[in-house]
Design a protein around this nucleic acid. Structure first.
Length: 545
DNA sequence: CTTATTAGCCTGTGGTTAGT
DNA sequence: ACTAACCACAGGCTAATAAG
């Protein structure tokens, strides 16, 4: 990730509400109050009355004076005027026109001003706020008098605006509360220096069943033991080595939760040579052998279990090489499909006869870093070129195996300094992809903006019975309990301070506050270094004793 | 105008050296 | 002996530039 010096993030930290509500109530009703507070807001009236001749800027100064702790945010954001109406489920945010006075404001929106402050980052973040009948769903609508409605009206999705301040934890909670098998992928860009963060992610921030990683940069002589995570097994791993230098590059690895490991194994089918990919099979049928055998006796149905085959792929950059690798992946898929023979095959490809009662279907989830920006490629129309060939190869892969790509948002953001300027250009790409041939079984999918590397984590929750899921949704312990749990399980560099820094960093990247993200990244590095130093000193002291 | 190549920027890693 | 700082290197990725 490139360093960033300019500001890309403009938080909406402060809203002014016309305080037209009588009887001393700050809010139109308790529901609004609850909804705002759940969303991480607090409120305060401007004391000492208002001078109606104040301009908005003067009002801002007044608010700054009253809220010195929020000076920085106010300086960045200015103030926006918001209107909340009794019994309404919306907050209308109006962009203020400089030079307008309080009187102008009140003429349009009613008398009195209520200041709504977004609380600091330490707001409670653990639980995803649920919609209830009593608590209205607060939506933000931005209105500006200067622009046509069609241009400026931004009606947000519940996930973005209902989300608490810590967007990442919110995203992780959505993942955790989905049923089924939770499969995630992250391009970690070296696992060696992120072992502890991975443990933290797996043990107390998520409930992932199958964690796939790419760009692990592991060496062949690196033991699995040094990368072990309590509660998880490394089921498959493939290291990449540079042909020229012999240095580690690329590499894929798949962790599987121990509870799932008894029904999971590394796929026995060999993928094509040269493809950086590993495959893990998860047995889905959980009815027990006896029942299946009885069923078989009664109906003649097959005894094979239904499988979910999870393929973790890394396609390094380089258009020509990628075409070769994508073709290899396609051939590997053919090989895998060929091996999926039903116990009673009726076709040349071993596909089950649909008339015949059989539950041994194999479904596929293929995920990884493809280094192919699906959004750019979708726009590429120049066939016959190398890029065109790449598009064609990817399309062929998708169509020949009926694969659907689930990830819609950007999975990597890069910021580059523009030549000869002090400004930075932001490039977003969708290169971490999740494919499946059974979209009906996908319970949830998406992107989690964790800041472990410049790639984000992508995931899907997969379950045959979408209503039940395979397991119950997990409820996370509180932040403190989670950290205690983590501490007891793991001997690591991460202490409470680093834990908090990581959370802050993830929040920063989610709201694209790149300056803070960079700063926190450095802080984490220093803090971890200091931890190591302290550990060594302690060990030394123990020895001398 | 499109495509391919290359330069540049960034990262992590590991070795060397100077200082404590 | 240990640590911190520095440097070189390889790899990943993008944007600029050259070539067709």
């Amino acid at each position: 990730m490139a360093r960033v010096k300019d500001k890309h993030w403009k938080p909406k930290d402060i809203f002014l509400l016309p305080n037209t509500f009588k009887n001393g109530d700050s809010y139109p009703n308790k529901g609004h109050q609850k909804a705002l507070e759940t969303g991480g807001y607090g409120s305060c009236n401007v004391e000492g009355g208002l001078d109606r001749s104040w301009t908005i800027d003067q009002l801002v100064d007044e608010v700054r004076g009253q809220f010195p702790r929020h000076e920085a945010e106010l300086a960045k954001t200015g103030i926006e005027f918001a209107q909340i109406t009794p019994n309404s489920k919306k907050i209308n945010v109006h962009v203020l026109v400089k030079g307008d006075t309080v009187a102008d404001l009140e003429k349009s929106h009613g008398s009195g001003i209520l200041v709504i402050l977004q609380k600091a980052r330490n707001a409670s973040l653990k639980t995803v706020p649920k919609q209830s009948k009593s608590t209205p769903h607060v939506k933000l609508e931005i209105k500006s008098p200067k622009k046509p409605q069609s241009q400026i009206r931004i009606k947000s999705e519940p996930t973005s605006h209902n989300a608490p301040l810590n967007q990442v934890q919110y995203e992780l909670d959505i993942l955790a509360q989905s049923g089924g098998i939770k499969i995630a992928h992250l391009n970690c860009q070296s696992l060696c220096n992120k072992k502890d963060e991975l443990k933290l992610l797996l043990l107390c921030r998520t409930d992932i069943d199958v964690m796939t990683l790419s760009e692990t940069f592991m060496r062949p002589n690196d033991s699995n033991g040094s990368f072990s995570v309590p509660g998880y097994t490394i089921l498959a791993r493939k290291d990449g080595v540079s042909k020229d230098s012999g240095r580690p590059r690329g590499g894929v690895l798949t962790y599987v939760k121990v509870s799932l490991a008894r029904s999971a194994r590394k796929c026995s089918v060999d993928l094509e040579e040269g493809l950086e990919a590993v495959c893990v099979d998860v047995e889905l049928d959980d009815d027990g052998p006896s029942k299946r055998l009885t069923d078989q006796a009664n109906s003649g149905a097959c005894v094979k279990k239904a499988l979910l085959r999870i393929v973790n792929v890394y396609v390094p950059p380089g258009t020509r090489g990628q075409i070769v690798l994508l073709k290899k992946l396609q051939r590997s898929m053919d090989i895998l499909r060929g091996a999926d023979k039903c116990c009673k095959p009726t076709s040349s490809r071993g596909i089950c006869d649909k008339k015949h009662s059989c539950s041994c279907k194999t479904s596929y989830v293929i995920l990884g870093d493809f280094n192919c920006d699906r959004k750019t490629l979708a726009e590429c129309k120049v066939m016959g070129s190398v890029m065109g060939e790449k598009v064609q190869t990817l399309d062929e892969l998708e169509s020949s195996h009926h694969l659907t790509q689930l990830i819609k948002g950007f999975t990597r953001v890069d910021l580059r300094k523009e030549r000869g300027r002090d400004t930075y250009k932001k490039t977003e790409s969708l290169i971490d992809l999740v494919y499946t041939d059974d979209t009906a079984s996908v319970i949830a999918s998406g992107v989690v903006h964790i800041g472990m590397s410049d790639h984000f984590m992508v995931y899907c929750a997969w379950g045959r019975d979408r209503k039940k899921g395979l397991r119950k949704a997990t409820r996370f312990p509180t932040q403190d309990a989670a950290f205690r749990q983590f501490s007891t399980k793991v001997n690591s560099d991460i202490d409470r301070r680093v834990y908090d820094l990581i959370r802050d960093r993830d929040s920063a990247i989610a709201r694209e506050d790149w300056d803070e993200y960079e700063r926190l990244k450095d802080d984490i590095k220093i803090a971890k270094k200091n931890n190591k130093k302290d550990q060594k000193q302690n060990e030394k002291a123990m020895k001398t004793k």
